[in-house]
Amino acid sequence: MKVLLGIAGSDETDAALEETVRRAVEANDDLTVAILEETDHESSPDEVEARARDRLDEADIDATIRRVSGDPGSELVEIAEREGFDRLVIGGGQRSPMGKIQLGSITEFVLLNAQVSVTLVR
């Protein structure tokens, strides 16, 4: 399966990366990791990319890493459609102090607008 994973530097990133790589190894997915050029997070895009590269090397899979600038939600949806991806994977929301799941604006945009199947990783 041709899978597009979108990650930025938020708390959800590691879980999404971990789970997607694990599945890619199992299912022999053709994986592309899109690093979103967002700056309002704990980790910078460079750090996120380095983490992704480490994880992919460790799993020993041949995946593509690319950087995505512009509006992250619509870019992800665009790329998935234009390049014939079967599935789009993103983080499944952050938790509030109370423990409530809160979906970010990128997640919302992707859920409402993607034509391909979307997986939220938690």
Partner: peptide, 23 residues
């Protein structure tokens, strides 16, 4: 349930409540 809370399962419920009680 609302937005993932309360969690399900005894352990998760207790862990969640401990945070609420402590903080």
């Amino acid at each position: 349930r609302a937005q993932g809370i309360p969690p399900t399962g005894e352990d998760r419920i207790e862990g969640w409540l401990e945070t609420l009680v402590d903080e």
